[in-house]
Amino acid sequence: MERKQPMLEIKNLTVWYGSINAVKGIDVSINRGEIVTLIGANGAGKSSTIRAIAGLVKGCGGSIAFTGKDGRVTQLLGKQPEAMVRQGIAISPEGRRILPHLTTEENLLLGAYTLSDKAQISENMEYAYSLFPRLKERRRQKGGTLSGGEQQMLAVGRSLMSSPELLMLDEPSLGLAPILVDEVFEIIKTINTEGRTILLVEQNALAALKIAAKAYVLEVGSITIQGTGGELLANPKVKEAYLGG
C-alpha cells in the first residue's frame, strides 16, 4: 500500500516567548482517524505546541503541514487562528475559555461561526447535546454559571460545532470528578470512532495512553519518548514518571 501523507505533520517546531524557549524543535505526526496524545509535566510545552498549531503564538519556527480530505496541503505556521478553523481544525483550549456572559447555546453557536448552513449548525448542536445531555438542560443558562465540569463539556461540545476533521483538546479532564473523567474519555473515544482525528493533551497520562494510537512524551520542550499508546504504557520510564510507578 502507498504510504499516506499524515493529516498533520509537525516538523522541527520551535516556540519562543521572548528569550524563553518553550518548544525546542519537535516532530509530531498525526494520521487521519487516529487519537494522538501529548503527555508531559507542567510547563513541558504541550499547550505551547497546540497554540502554535492554532496560530496564537508569534515566535515560532519549523513547519506545520495540514493535509485536508481533498489532499491539499496547507502550511499552518504563521497563519491566523481563523485559517486553522477554516481548514477543519477545532480546539478546546486549556482552561475551557467559556464565554461567561453568553448562554450555553450561544457558546455553541460561536463554535459554529465558520458554518453558514443552518441545517448543519443545528445538526451539530444536536450532536453536541447528544454527547452531553446536561448541556441541553442548561441551554439557556449563562456559561459563567455552569459548574466546572459542565463548562468543560461545553468547551468540548463547542469545539465540535464547526464540523472539524481534527480536534485538539487541551486537558479536557482537568478539574473533573473521577467519574466524569471516565465519561469524558469515553466520549473522546466515541467522537474518534465516529470519524474525527484527535490530538489530546493530558495530565491524566494513564487514561490518555489507553485510548491513544500514538503518544509523545514532552519534557522541557523536547520529545523524549514516543510510540504507540500500548508501548508507552509498558515503558518503565513512562511508568515511573507519569503513571505513578
Binding site: 496564537l56 491566523q80 487562528p81 464565554l99 465558520t114
Partner: peptide
C-alpha cells in the same frame, strides 16, 4: 459580544 469579553477565544472559533 464575544470579542468584548475574550478576543483570543473568539479568534479560536474562527
Amino acid at each position: 459580544r464575544s470579542i468584548s469579553f475574550d478576543i483570543e477565544t473568539t479568534r479560536l472559533m474562527g
